[in-house]
Design a protein around this nucleic acid. Structure first.
Lengths: 401, 401
DNA sequence: GATGATTTGTTGTTGTTTAGAACATATTAC
DNA sequence: GTAATATGTTCTAAACAACAACAAATCATC
């Protein structure tokens, strides 16, 4: 056996003519997917490829039913109108998001069109076996519903915890009490479909990056505040960062206070022990509020206590963001969940801290925005996992009538 | 003017046949560059390309004098021996590293071979004009020395501060007292050579990643402790992160103490205000020590005060590393400068903190190592900037006899 | 020391893919 | 209604890697 020199892995990254074809097909499909429909002429401009080449590429994708051509826009432009290239309705991905009080599944088409979403409330936090059983049942239901005219690529799973990218093992999902559970493998066995799992906030990042507040932004960070903690994700140089095993983006455990509370992770002063949704909910005096109600209560700001807690949490959030901005130099910080609500209450406060605390050069380049995608964010992000293989290599997609 | 749809920049990333050639030439040249010499047969395995294709690619690179072929290794293997592909001696990059007490320049060939290094001590911290003048003089000297048989690609500059990648403007170099100085442009004007500037620790990261402790590691972070502070860099998914303007990697301003000292950046409790070389030097009772002497004194550990300070600094370092590991999930943490010395004094202490503080899944994947490259690290990293264009597109290199 | 097995370099041919030119078509502008 | 303009369509050319067949240089074996 020949051992390659250290630093020279035997990865076959040489390119041939067929790699060019794969890359260009992939590029065109992605452009249509992300734009949800563009004129063919725009594709020639976006890619720099020749008209005849785009015609051939679109032709093959249409042949494979990954795209369909639509009537040209009535655009009042001189010259022959260019037909729209639209995402085709055949390719279909399922998505699942297990949470402590519910399991949500969805059926998603190219272009991030959520065709159907089902939320099944649960009496208690599900074990892995229960989550797999419920998911399999709901997926079977979707499969029956979308039997005709669709080819299912697989299931993407957005899990609230650390998920090993390589095999979809859930290493730790503290709120579900899952430790080292082979969720993806078990769901695969139960459904017969390929399953791809990743961290929920990481998938939220992808969704916002491709279809939401991060469209066209190459360097961004995303932080999401949920009932059970704070997660996030990073896009740098146009690529979603995963880290070596897929655990990147855990902003929730950034140290923001030397003498804070002890976190469930064992450390002291983590962002997610200081910046918490439950404290805000408690101070508003409400119970069982949804996101919109909480935000309305915070913005109303009837109590001085509420206002003080909001500002306290913003201060801690700013510390974590300052670290992240210094380390990653993003152009955009996207805030989701109740972190977006905090920002809505006192945008000037956070903007000011973020303009002054990090190194000036990095601070001036960054702007804070709220996430744009709503309840479908995780479903869209998870489905993206299942679409990955087709987007990377469209000619692997065989129409399965 | 047609405005492309948001999220669909008109970047021409479609590929043609000549892009294949460029990519493969680039790949082969990089493999030889990074390995400093590899058998042609190994290139076929590393790239997955056909023997005849490799022969053609190597042939073109030899023609351009970017590579030379050498005698086969005496490797005791069956079969026809494969000639070595070695970095050619023609392409040459200059490198410069301005510091408060000296300016160092170097001449570097492909394969990161440092042909010459000149350190010019300075009486006082140089202004930009002084730094440009001294550098231009030293570069002229190197140019004369390497007049024959070389084609100079340009000058790479490793600057201890925030450098805007796009144009090489030094936004802030606190210890040099430079603010918004167009260092690259002025050096370009003074020498007539293309100048590429970046942050010193970022370039150290690249050097360690390509030729040092990070060879073959796709996900790593590098932290370097110098007399004037702590810098660093990130490689994720095999790519060096720059952030949107090139300021990524500033680990020195991670918050590690809520009630610490005020940093020169204006914030409180930054890593580099708590973990400082000068404190260690002061406690050893020495003056004007070099790195080896400091490390020897720390390891000897004759004083309880020294030992306590080392452990205190390691605790703070661990906080910053914990944040970074949670956010980036690297497989390797490389420590350079006096941070490497701290680790040498009490490796178990840092290893233990790093194994327990971050989330377990990320912690178990990470290992700490010391940097491997010595005094040439920044020269090699800076030269890499100047080599970039040739490595990306070898056919742009015209032998200029 | 000769012979065969093995690996790799070399050469000429083939297949795939994009680019380009020429022409056709559909819209707006006047 | 005609000209200008932009785009789709078709056919040909050029670039490139893959492949096959052969040559060369080493090791293993007797």
């Amino acid at each position: 056996m020949s051992t390659p020199a250290r630093g020279l892995p035997a990865s076959a990254d040489g390119r041939g003519n067929s790699d060019v074809r794969r890359h260009n097909l992939s590029l065109v499909l992605r452009l249509v997917h992300q734009s949800r429909g563009v004129p063919r002429s725009q594709l020639t401009r976006s890619t720099g490829l020749n008209r005849s080449t785009i015609a051939a590429l679109v032709g093959e994708l249409v042949e494979r039913e990954l795209l369909v051509e639509g009537e040209p826009d009535a655009s009042n432009q001189v010259g022959r109108p260019s037909p729209l290239a639209l995402p085709g309705p055949r390719a279909l991905a399922f998505a699942v998001n297990p949470e402590i009080d519910a399991i949500t599944v969805g059926a998603v088409g190219l272009g991030a069109t959520v065709l159907r979403r089902i939320r099944r409330p649960l009496a208690a936090s599900p074990s892995v076996a229960e989550a797999v059983a419920v998911t399999a049942e709901l997926v079977a239901q979707l499969r029956a519903e979308f039997d005709e005219g669709h080819t299912v690529l697989g299931i993407g799973a957005a899990v609230p915890g650390l998920v090993r990218a390589r095999d979809g093992v859930v290493r730790l999902a503290p709120h579900l009490h899952w430790v080292d559970e082979p969720f993806a493998a078990e769901l695969e066995a139960a459904t017969g479909l390929p399953v791809f799992a990743a961290n929920d906030a990481n998938l939220g990042t992808r969704a916002e990056s491709l279809f939401g507040a991060g469209r066209g932004v190459a360097d961004l960070i995303y932080l999401n505040g949920g009932a059970s903690g704070i997660g996030g994700g990073i896009v740098s140089g146009g690529r979603a960062l995963t880290g070596v095993e897929g655990y990147a983006g855990e902003f929730g455990h950034t140290v923001v206070s030397t003498d804070g509370e002890t976190c469930h992770c064992g450390a002291v002063g983590c962002l997610e022990t200081e910046v918490r949704r439950d404290r805000l909910v408690a101070l508003t005096g409400l119970t069982d509020v949804d996101s919109d109600e909480l935000e309305a209560a915070l913005v109303a700001g009837n109590s001085a206590d509420v206002r003080a807690e909001v500002l306290r949490q913003i201060d801690f959030l700013a510390v974590a963001l300052r670290n992240a901005v210094n380390i990653l130099n993003p152009s955009t910080v996207i805030l989701g969940g109740f972190l977006g609500s905090l920002y809505a209450v006192a945008p000037d406060q956070l903007d000011a801290l973020l303009a002054s605390q990090p190194l000036a050069a990095s601070a001036e380049a960054v702007s804070v925005v709220r996430s744009e995608l709503g309840v479908n964010r995780l479903i869209i992000g998870a489905a993206e996992l299942a679409f990955q293989s087709v987007l990377d290599d469209p000619s692997s997609f065989v129409v399965n009538r």
